[in-house]
Design a protein around this nucleic acid. Structure first.
Length: 831
RNA sequence: GCCUCUGUGGCGGAAUUGGUAGACGCUGUGGAUUUAAAAUCCAUUGUCCCUAGGACGUGCGGGUUCGAGUCCCGCCGGAGGUACCA
């Protein structure tokens, strides 16, 4: 331990203030129906992406976003808002379960210990959370409502006419059968090839596959019966209703790309010599004349029907080869085209030509219809395939100019296309679709890349589905709401069974609900809890509803949401979907959960690399706190640069802000009640203005610069008026709450800074009697002159032209023009 | 390949949105204090010519303008996302 003397005793006072805030519940937020609630105040709901409490504890990325929201929350509170700024735990998840498999320790025990550690670490940073609102996704009181929401999804369908979800009871009244209703539920059972991970013993959502593969897990396609959520019904609304949100354009873009809307047509190709019809989706119906062959995905159901006897053997062999290929082999690693002819032919509906039908793995069963019309002249993939297998290539688009038409995928003028010849691509598309619709050979069609959400997992540590199965009929039904929450049975062996029904299969007593019914053994994915936690914070203890109606109508949705980009398409899309369903069903008053979204940038290691154990560049917040204090950590994380930006860590930088705080600490020695200083008053009030503007626009780095300048002015002065310094401490309080409170208390200040009103700017103090004017000659700075603030344009011009340096630069030249920007500058144009 | 973001001193970054480029902080250099160090304080720190002062300077090349880091056109580099999506 170094003998380094601490420049101020943060180790003594930081914990003191934290204890006081906790004991007095300084940051408790009263909501509707609670003591002390003042409904006349405007609300401001600030949300952090709640952490998964891992065993590793906080890393420096957490306090970045959390400090930003903390500053905003404290500021808004001082500005007279009812601020909701809560924290909680996304506590279901695989690591705890895997730890349990290894050690036999129950995931609940591990999770609790991790949560306690996270809470301790966050509290040591002095965040102004209302800890009475803490939520934990694994609490029975929380699980109950996650399951309740699932039942709402289960009991709803998407009404196409109104474009919204409605209860299935509407359909029952219309006389729909049970089977028909099961077909349209928003939560439904579906048997389809899914992403099954043998190494983890669970299935995964499409969205998760890459992430886990990157971590070394194996994932393969396998047909299984799974719970799905019909998010695809909301594809269009998820695009449209994204538009007005105050989100980073990049995130909106990611969501739009993920949903992947494309417009085109569905076209029917008759199979020659039989009744079968192959439907294809195309975004380029204008190129239909150029469709010289077709390709079916190897898994396409028509393959076995159309294949000729001569080709059967080759087709079967190819299908088998594809089935055993991993996604990686089929995708990234193998861009080489492969395929086999089926021997069958289809009829191009517009040209009447017979075209061969092939199967190839470059066509995916999961998108569109699983079949394509191949236009090798104007599609790169088809072009490559046609060259390899020597299939005909027919030009149908003229790119114009000298451009090569082979493989040209852009827009141009239709050629060799009968009635489309001479039309531009746009017009040709429209005309072809009209023709197809008139002839009954196709329709206008919009396609989305978005798939329905695979919602079941074969895990122990997740919410069990509140679903019962009839042992006789195999029909499913929702568990009665009174029986929620349905918790997992106590178990000691969490190992995957290899059975795709998951580890709960072993809890035979638990499964057996009654003579007639047994329980569903799947559990929900971790996303379930995080889909609606922001709602629960508003009313965390409500046992009657997931959120009280009065409470919901006050807090509504989140005003500011801060978190990392990694959730751009997962959590942020899922939560929007659930919110919309709950809104459709009348449980929520808003359409979107998060009005404004800000992504904090990644903090890199001191070496500019991403922090990682293997590189040894990880910074532990606990170490920074013990050496420099929580205020220094908070301040440094905000001073590093713009919140959204990726930026490297620097211990020297931490020392820099620590020095600033030490200077503030020393200012108190020269505070005096007697002195008055116009100069310092002006600086202080300028600082109020600058800090305020910076916070409002989330530019915390410049707010800190402004405060540094102000404190430099105090340090240069012989004495600092007490009232001004208190204002300064108020400005500093959201950033460095401990030190500011401590200094304020040492100066004998009454009450808490955090509970004072934000200081008002005295604009009169900011008015200058004399202002500096920049004088340029031909756009180059030549002089600075002081003029009276109320000086006229003419006076300013005259003074500028009289300046010595201006005279020397205009000598021998003719002044052509003088531009005067009042209060700013004069530019003399001379040549 | 496509999409989004981004490019300013030795470093992190400012710049009132078209008007003093480099605020604030870090680093470096010189000095004060000290037996010495730490801490603290003062000066200096874009490059070049160096004397007041001047020339150059915001990835590169053009353009618009009295005036461009900021707007327009064309390149180049970096980061992230995504990709047989028909």
């Amino acid at each position: 331990m170094s003998e380094k003397k601490k420049s101020f005793p943060f180790d003594e006072f930081e914990s003191k203030w934290q204890e006081l805030w906790a004991a007095e519940k300084t940051f408790r937020t009263a909501g509707p129906g609670e003591d002390g609630f003042d409904g006349s105040k405007p609300k401001y709901y600030i949300l952090d992406m709640f952490p998964y409490p891992s065993g590793a504890g906080l890393h420096v990325g957490h306090p970045e976003g959390y400090t930003a929201t903390d500053i905003m929350g404290r500021y808004k509170r001082m500005k007279g808002f009812n601020v909701l700024h809560p924290m909680g735990w996304d506590a279901f998840g695989l690591p705890a379960e895997q730890y349990a498999i290894k050690t036999g320790q129950h995931p609940r025990v591990t999770t609790e210990a991790n949560v306690d550690n996270f809470r301790r670490q966050l509290q040591a940073l002095g965040f102004a959370y209302d800890w009475d609102r803490e939520v934990n996704t694994t609490d029975p009181g929380y699980v109950k409502w996650t399951q309740w929401i699932f039942i709402q999804l289960y009991n709803s369908y998407f009404c196409e006419e109104e474009g919204k979800a409605k209860p299935v009871s509407v359909l029952e009244e219309k006389g729909w059968s049970r089977e028909e209703i099961d077909e349209v539920r928003l939560a439904f059972i579906h048997e389809a090839p899914v992403n099954w991970s043998p190494s983890m013993g669970t299935v995964l959502a499409n969205e998760e596959v890459e992430e886990w593969k990157a971590k070394g897990e194996t994932v393969e396609r396998r047909p299984l019966r799974q719970w799905m959520l019909r998010i695809t019904k909301y594809a269009q609304r998820l695009i449209d209703e994204l538009e007005p949100l105050d989100w980073p354009e990049s995130i909106k873009m990611l969501q739009r790309n993920w949903i992947g809307r494309s417009e085109g047509a569905e076209v029917e190709f008759a199979v020659a010599g039989c009744e079968d019809v192959i439907r294809v989706f195309t975004t380029r119906p204008d190129t239909l004349f150029g469709a010289t062959y077709m390709v079916l995905a190897p898994e396409h159901p028509l393959v076995d029907e159309v294949v000729t006897d001569e080709q059967r053997e080759a087709v079967v062999a190819y299908k088998e080869a594809c089935a055993t290929k991993s996604d990686l082999e089929r995708g990234d690693l193998n861009k080489d085209k492969s395929g086999v002819a089926t021997g069958a032919f289809a009829v191009n509906p517009v040209s009447g030509e017979e075209v061969p039908i092939w199967i190839a793995d470059y066509v995916m069963m999961g998108y569109g219809t699983g079949a394509i019309m191949a236009v090798p002249a104007h599609d790169e993939r088809d072009f490559e395939f046609a060259k390899k297998f020597e299939l005909p290539i027919l030009q149908v688009v003229d790119p114009g100019g000298d451009e090569e038409w082979q493989g040209f995928t852009g827009e141009g003028v239709a050629v060799n296309s009968g009635f489309l010849d001479g039309l531009e691509t746009g017009g040709a598309k429209a005309k072809m679709i009209d023709w197809l619709e008139k002839e009954g050979k196709g329709t206008r069609q919009v396609n989305y890349k978005l798939r329905d959400w695979l919602f079941s997992r074969q895990r122990y540590w997740g919410e069990p589905f509140p679903i019962l199965w009839n042992k006789e009929t195999g029909e499913h039904a929702a568990l009665p709401e009174e029986e929620l929450p349905l918790l997992q049975p106590e178990m000691e062996d969490f190992k995957p069974t290899g059975d795709p029904r998951g580890p709960l299969l072993k809890a035979t007593e638990w499964i057996n609900y009654s003579g007639e019914f047994e329980r569903e053994t799947n559990t929900m994915p971790q996303w379930a809890g995080s889909c609606w936690y922001y709602l629960r914070y508003c009313d965390p203890k409500n046992a009657e509803r997931f959120i009280g109606e009065e409470v919901e109508s006050y807090w509504k949705n989140v005003d500011l949401y801060v978190g990392g980009t990694e959730h751009a398409v997962l959590h942020l899309l899922y939560a929007r979907f659930w919110h919309k369903v709950l809104n459709d069903l009348g449980h929520l008053s808003t359409k979107e959960p998060f009005e404004k979204l800000v992504n904090q940038g990644l903090i890199l290691g001191e070496d500019g690399q991403k922090m990682s154990k293997s590189l040894g560049n990880v910074v532990n917040p606990d170490d920074v706190v013990s050496e420099y204090g929580a205020d220094s950590l908070r301040l440094y994380e905000m001073f590093m640069g713009p919140l959204e930006q990726v930026k490297p860590w620097s211990m020297k930088g931490v020392e820099g802000v620590h020095r600033f705080l030490a200077k503030v600490w020393r200012v108190k020695e020269k505070v005096s009640g007697e002195v008055s200083s116009d100069e310092l008053a002006k600086v202080t009030h300028q600082t109020i203005k600058r800090v305020q503007e910076s916070i409002e626009s989330l530019r915390f780095n410049t707010a800190i610069s402004a405060m540094m300048e102000c404190s430099n002015a105090y340090n240069a002065a012989d004495a600092v008026p007490r009232d001004l310094f208190v204002i300064f401490l108020q400005l500093l309080n959201p950033f460095a709450p401990h030190l500011s409170e401590e200094v304020h208390a040492l100066l004998g200040g009454e009450g808490l800074l955090s509970e004072m009103n934000w200081p008002l700017v005295n604009e009169e103090l900011l008015v200058e009697s004399e202002i500096q004017i920049i004088v340029q000659v031909n756009g180059k700075l030549r002089a600075r002159i002081m003029v009276a603030a109320e000086a006229s344009k003419e006076e300013v011009e005259e003074l500028a032209l009289a300046d010595e340096n201006v005279v020397s630069f205009t000598e021998g030249k003719t002044v052509r023009k003088v531009i005067v920007v009042p209060g700013k500058l004069v530019n003399v144009v001379a040549n």
